[in-house]
Amino acid sequence: MTTIRNMMAVSVAAMLGLAGSVSAQSFPDKPITMIVPFAAGTSTDTVSRLIAERMSEDLGQTVVVENRAGAGGSVGTQDVVSSDADGYTIAMGTVGTLAINKSIFPELPYDPESDVTPIAFVGYTPTLLVVSAESSFQTLNDLVEAARSEDGVTFASTGNGTSTHLAGELLKTLSDTNMIHVPFGSGAVGLAAVMSGEVDFMFNHPVSAKQNVDAGKLRALGVSGAAGSEVAPEVPPINDSYEGFDLIAWWLMHGPADMPADVTEKLNMAVTNALASDAVSEHFVKSGISKGEIPFAELEGFISSEVNKWGDIANAANAQAN
């Protein structure tokens, strides 16, 4: 294992050396590859493809989207991090690949704080805490009260160490109650289990949950972001009752470390223009994604603060699990 890691380190070093300083005057003079570290059809993939299309128009070169899924996005991200830092290989990063994975995968081969050049913040979405419409929990308080019993309440997630799991763990920690984690391989199956009442609650992406809320199959008791959700403005933020419950899922375009500043700037402009386009705006509204207003200079600090925030939650959860 050590040999593999050493080999990786050597190859990363070699590639960084090769990258050197590439003239950015003519950038881009060939197609750009955007690695999406998740499967086709996922929300990250959808967002990436829409943005890649606008970026291609803007840059005059095709931005090719390539899906390279695996290990919660770590496989594809590692490929980008270890490629030439010339701007021709970039990635769509997420709260998972750039923050959570660091505390979840002990053998993560890259460090989101030092192996990455942030290009632009793309957008974010809070998640909804939903229960079945037939459930007796009418408010967040009902749920928390029930969780004080010995049997507690159960919550579904998309797997150990995912944002949906950690959100539940944070609520458990902040309310100091008994909330039992029930991992599901896919969020869709987990949502079905909540609908049927098999599991008590779940944190879910607002769009897939919202339709079922409107149809009277689910009830939303809270929203994870401090500012609420544009999709469901009537749902109260959990942060109002439990301060510190400010969790959002976000997307951030990035490349390998040490990208030339002028190349990064060009790419940043292209993403910014793409975000301003009608096609992307429309999709964001429909999907409940908000545009982020994080200035370029603050991106690195943002990644660090998110790494720490999720790391704390993960540590607290692990401490309780053992």
Binding site: D45, R49, A215
Partner: peptide
């Protein structure tokens, strides 16, 4: 995903 991309959200 294709449906959502086309602006159609399947559900109840």
């Amino acid at each position: 995903g294709a449906m959502i991309m086309h602006g159609v959200i399947p559900g109840p």
